[in-house]
Design a protein around this nucleic acid. Sequence first.
DNA 1: ACGGTGACGCTCA
DNA 2: TTGAGCGCCACCG
Length: 115
Amino acid sequence: MSTPSSWINRIHAYNATPFSKKVWLAMLRIPKGKVASYQTIARMAGSPLASRAVGNACNANPFAPRVPCHRVVSSSGEIGGYAHGIKKKIEWLKKEGIVVRGNTIVDFETIEFQH
DNA sequence: ACGGTGACGCTCA
DNA sequence: TTGAGCGCCACCG
């Protein structure tokens, strides 16, 4: 019940808008130890200019942290926001081996997942 | 139907 | 470097 495909099923079964589901599905593709920008997720969801709307979808993610919205950060390398508090977001990221200094991802460019 | 909202991103002073 | 301004877009009352 924790395989990637089961989360895909959970997402599809959940009552949410198509765009939100696309965003959540895209997040599943970010490898542990990497991060993706809201912009990249927007691109993956098929709406390249909807980075802002991606933030809204992340905020509505009912499956955190198993569906890893904590791996979605600002294109500047800043942490961005988190529904359960930025502290929590940084906590998850560090647990996955990502180094965070202040509100910034260290070596963001090299660990950024792009698609 | 429509205007307000927000976990964005970019530019410019 | 930092903050203000603005464009962007899906979603919600």
